[in-house]
Nucleic acid binder design. Structure first.
Lengths: 258, 258
DNA sequence: CTTGACCTTGCCGCAGCGTCAGGGTTTCTA
DNA sequence: TAGAAACCCTGACGCTGCGGCAAGGTCAAG
């Protein structure tokens, strides 16, 4: 038989057969006078065996082990291992599909946030909050999406619980919005602008105890953390001053600004 | 932030971040005077978004599409497609695992054939037949394993049904074994050996109608087919002569040997 | 004699980075 | 204050399981 014939017989491509030769999985047959490979039954048997193994999902190196390591024990071992591996993959796919399902529901409901796939809790919260028109509010949205995908799930849930009133209580929402507008106004202000102090105070006042607790824990880490710096750099100087005061007030032992 | 910091923040490696730059998924930030990349919040936001998408299983080119193609519609579309794809993968894994389960049971029962994973039916049949000590019988085993993994499932089942009596009926088994021994004896015989004719006749006699029917269909194809030649080449000349006579007798319109 | 269907070797491409190699910078520690 | 550890930079190869192409040689049929 020539390579195309044996390949068709085994249901693979000639290219695959040559590949198996290259890897040493399948012995090279003798050549015909014209240089063509000339396969016999034993090659067909070997090739069929390789194909059966690869169809199970074994990698070619593992196939080689099974073929080499003289039969019996090794195979069962490899199969067991493979099954574990497939089980893991299946679980991973299941998980992704579960999350996809949620997202597809959001998409059909039209509540899929433009920021991409977020946790369902945050997606809901943001969709309630949404287009406030304030640049500062937009930044906070971004910060929330970051936190959403970065902190461990339980911290995130506590944060979301703490924020929910801001979306559900119209009066509170209005107050926060007004504060955002005042923060926006500081975009071109200097760092000694007299509006900074009062605004920070009012921000602190509007934040509930629960949030204060949350920040307290994360804070000393986050102020040192480079991300804290980057976040401040993201604001105009006067705005950053407000945020610094705000965070300092929420931290339990308010050490200085830097 | 430097690259290691933003990478840790997003839960990826610096290498992955550079890779995203390379692919144009993530804009290159400004550089510090020392040449280090200097990331801000917007990069962190973008990176987190990329990571959320890749975690769902999207490929990087698709991530790029979603990021580029201005939001909303495209994402849902890609997610739908991805879900289909994952469903397919899951089904494939399920199937493999089902087959693995059978094999692992065989392995635990000690009936796992040395030839590797075969169809359960053939595995059972071979385990009943097994070590006959005849070289010709061993070849037939090989041919069976080949057929097992090559023909469509229904043909295979018919063949197995037809062969089952040979394993289950001890008297029949003994007769076949005797014939194999006589075939073995021809290994060094010439092509005009007088034992050839009678042996072929007795082989034909022992084969039940059902098998004859099977061969009839597959035969004219298989004699022309290169595999038929290879199979004959696998036998010694006198043995091949027996097989040729045998097959010719089973074929409906027994056209000559070649 | 040509066409078309085979065969030969050899090398690039794919996804998503990991992992050197071969540098420079910054920072902590002794 | 020096040395080591821990970062950063660019560039290039490696992995899986082949597919696809290049640049030929071979063989049967029209």
């Amino acid at each position: 038989m020539r390579i195309g014939e044996i390949a068709a017989l085994a249901g693979v491509t000639p290219r695959a057969v040559r590949h198996y030769h290259h890897l040493g999985l399948l012995p090279e047959p003798d050549r015909l006078p014209n240089g063509y490979r000339d396969y016999g039954v034993r090659h067909a048997v070997a090739l069929a065996r390789i194909r059966r193994l690869t169809e199970l999902g074994l990698g070619l190196p593992e196939v080689r082990d099974v073929l080499a390591d003289d039969e019996g024990r090794e195979l069962a071992e490899v199969l067991e291992e493979l099954d574990q591996d497939l089980a893991r993959q299946e679980a991973a796919i299941e998980e992704r599909r579960a999350r996809l399902k949620l997202l597809l529901e959001q998409a059909r409901a039209g509540t899929l946030p433009a920021e991409g796939p977020l946790s369902p809790g945050l997606a809901e919260l943001l969709s309630a909050f949404s287009p406030s028109g304030s640049a500062s509010a937009a930044k906070d949205r971004e910060h929330l999406t970051l936190i959403d995908s970065m902190v461990p799930a339980e911290d995130r849930d506590r944060l979301l619980d703490a924020l929910r009133p801001f979306a559900e209580d119209p009066e509170l929402t209005a107050r926060v919005h007004a504060l955002y507008v005042r923060l926006d106004a500081l975009v071109d202000a200097k760092e000694d602008d007299p509006r900074i102090g009062p605004l920070a105070d009012e921000l602190v006042a509007v934040v509930p105890e629960s949030l204060s607790g949350l920040f307290a824990g994360a804070d000393e880490a986050s102020r040192e953390h480079p991300f804290g710096q980057a976040m401040l750099d993201d604001f105009a100087p006067a705005q950053a001053a407000v945020v610094r005061k705000f965070m300092a007030a929420l931290a339990p032992k308010g050490r200085g600004t830097q």
